[in-house]
């Protein structure tokens, strides 16, 4: 700091005035020491992070008991900016990693936030199996229609006709309809929003977080640097305007009818919200109680016992 600027702040002995709290409301949820983030101006991922943080706030979650797991890619970097126990794993594997984390430590609410390529292409098998098992996870998939981190290649959600670096003459592969995939695999909650619909998205994430079982929220988000630029869809603002003009809220729509076509209507809303389907752990517990009765050991606090440590138990006791 220059002397001139130091002087401008007045003598060091002056009584400090009460400073207003200028912290950003999202600061408690973010690793401020990691900013600025890597995302491009106009990218939709930051909006999803804000909505997620807002949902945590609204739901008054014990933040020590929420963990975020991401895979690889632009959306995979979400875990790095959220101030929770956060795990940046391998490409496509956040769901099985999160499954292990959740099953070993039931008190954690485990959330997977990652991209369409990560969760649906390389991680597609894990996605459908976690949904089938109804593992108690919330999966937020940020769908920007391409592999952005690697420069904009075609992805499993890229609409037919869209240009990418690996479909220079237009995509000709049928994309996955993510809500239909999730619903048919067994997800108990399926919704789709765009990064424009921040209020509805926040509420939807909150619903997903509070609902037991495999809950899935797809978020359509602009990738201005690669996807929307190459496809001449305009600036990010124009893309958001197109979300406004071009999306149709249809709660309860049959997920098999919500395919996305290039330039076509985007059907958004809550498509699936099933009550009463037992989660993986509920099914496991029920089956073992039926088979083993009192001998079933999960009633015991296996997690502390197996780590086998006084220190851990003490720390937990302090926490509770």
């Amino acid at each position: 700091m220059s002397d001139a600027r130091k002087n401008a702040q007045g003598p060091a002995t002056a009584e400090p005035e009460a400073t207003p709290d200028v912290r950003h409301p999202m600061e408690p949820f973010l690793r401020m020491d990691r900013f600025p983030h890597i995302w491009c101006p106009g990218c939709g991922i930051g909006t999803v992070v804000t909505c997620f943080a807002d949902a945590l706030k609204k739901g008054a979650f014990d933040l020590d008991r929420v963990a975020v797991v991401s895979g690889i890619g632009c959306s995979g970097r979400v875990a790095g900016y959220i101030k929770l126990d956060s795990f940046h794993t391998t490409h496509g594997r956040p769901i099985p990693f999160a499954t292990g984390l959740h099953l070993s430590n039931r008190r954690l609410k485990v959330v997977v936030i990652s991209g369409d390529g990560d969760l649906i292409a390389i991680g597609g098998n894990h996605f459908i199996h976690a949904a089938r098992r109804n593992v108690d996870l919330t999966v937020i998939c940020i769908n920007n229609f391409n592999y952005a981190m690697t420069g904009g290649q075609v992805g499993p959600g890229t609409p037919v006709l869209a240009i990418s670096t690996t479909t220079p003459f237009g995509n000709f592969e049928h994309p996955f309809n993510l809500p239909a995939l999730a619903a048919s695999s067994g997800a108990v909650y399926v919704a789709r929003w765009t990064s424009l619909h921040v209020r509805r998205l926040t509420n939807s994430i909150l619903e997903a977080l509070t609902k037991p079982g495999f809950t899935f929220v797809e978020v359509i988000a602009p990738c201005p640097t690669l996807y929307t630029r190459r496809n001449k869809l305009g600036t990010s603002l124009e893309v958001l305007e197109s979300y406004r003009d071009n999306s149709e809220i249809r709660h309860g729509a049959d997920p098999s009818t919500v395919d996305i076509s290039f330039g076509g209507k985007i059907v958004i809303g809550k498509f699936v919200d099933i009550e009463g389907k037992p989660t993986f752990l509920e099914s496991l517990d029920a089956a073992m109680h039926r088979a083993l009765g009192k001998d079933y050991g999960l009633g015991k606090d296996y997690y502390m016992r197996s780590a086998g440590q006084r220190a851990l138990v003490d720390r937990e006791a302090r926490h509770d």
Binding site: P96, G100, L101, H126
Partner: peptide
């Protein structure tokens, strides 16, 4: 699990959850 990639990922997650 559904495959060995998932199996290995799951045990890493579980270890962070506090178990062996």
């Amino acid at each position: 699990m559904e495959d060995e990639m998932a199996s290995m990922a799951a045990i890493l997650g579980a270890a962070w959850g506090g178990v062996k």
